[in-house]
């Protein structure tokens, strides 16, 4: 059942993301060509004061167009890039707010499926799109980076691996992924809580999110302070290298994320199963 839900969830969301991804990558490519390629020669540049600047030679119609075009392309790319992340956030919210708690909820909640399966479905697919969007964003930047800088990358990556080790990378990735999952679940909790009220649901959801965020921060702070107090006896922070501190922090963050995530998941499952109140 869960697999079926996910199949339809992907179908419902892919129509937004795939064109966007293609556009972002396409414009990254276009920009690479217009800023670095042969296109760039003989281009009207506003900042180029060299003799070769066509602006100075007075024969500048085509170069002007080229200049305007490449600026335009860059502008579009930046817009798309920003749009990528805004759109991802909006879709994550909409797929829960509208699709589960809106009119479509009548369809969803009468399917012979458990409430938690619905939440897990939305969570997994939303997280997937977030990851994909990030990957597409990073790829687009990689496309834009000039070849010389690109060649530096493997070297930089090897240095990082040397510094924090494979375990460090693993912990970092785990920390990032659990943070993503927690972030999405916090949104779901906030929306579900906001939905308990009859009016101003959206506004209250936003308020709930702020509250949840604040509480999470406080708990995180308390735990860090508390654990530092305890561990000061066991671990001498002065002699520990930065490396271990970083790893320790990320590991603790990961664990905390998992615990909070579980809590939010249980909360939303309960709310949606027992306190559902569709319009």
């Amino acid at each position: 059942m869960l697999a079926k839900l996910m199949k339809y969830e992907v179908k419902a969301t892919a129509r937004w993301f795939l064109p966007l991804y293609v556009s972002v990558l396409l414009f990254a490519l276009i920009n690479k060509l217009t800023w670095y390629g042969p296109f760039m020669e003989n281009k009207f540049s506003f900042t180029d004061s060299s003799i070769n600047n066509p602006a100075l030679s007075g024969n500048s119609f085509v170069p002007v167009i080229k200049g305007i075009m490449s600026s335009l392309f860059m502008f579009i790319y930046v817009m798309l890039f920003v749009g990528l992340f805004v759109a991802t956030l909006i879709v994550v919210i909409q797929r829960y707010y509208k699709s589960l708690l809106g009119d479509e909820g009548y369809l969803m909640f009468t399917l012979p499926v458990n409430a938690w399966q619905h939440i897990l479905n939305k969570l997994v697919i939303s997280a997937l799109w977030c990851l994909l969007s990030s990957i597409v964003g990073i790829c687009s930047i990689l496309i834009l980076i000039p070849r010389e800088a690109l060649q530096e990358l493997p070297y930089a990556f090897a240095r990082v691996k040397e510094f924090i080790g494979v375990s460090g990378i693993v912990i970092f990735v785990l920390g990032a992924v659990t943070s993503l999952v927690l972030g999405i679940l916090k949104i779901y909790s906030a929306i579900s809580l906001g939905h308990l009220f009859n009016k101003y649901k959206l506004l209250l959801s936003f308020v709930m999110y702020l509250a949840i965020d604040a509480i999470t921060q406080v708990v995180w702070m308390l735990i860090t302070v508390f654990s530092v107090n305890i561990s000061l006896n066991k671990i001498d922070f002065a002699s520990m290298s930065n490396l271990h501190q970083v790893k320790y922090v990320f590991a603790a963050l990961t664990v905390l994320n998992v615990v909070f995530s579980a809590g939010h998941f249980l909360l939303t499952s309960y709310l949606v199963k027992r306190r559902l109140n569709l319009e």
């Binding site: 909820g105 009548y106 009468t110 458990n114």
Partner: peptide, 20 residues
Amino acid sequence: GIETKKIVSYLPEKTYLNNW
């Protein structure tokens, strides 16, 4: 619950199907 949803067919008053 799940068992009843398998045997109950519901037509709500509103249009609730995915428009797209």
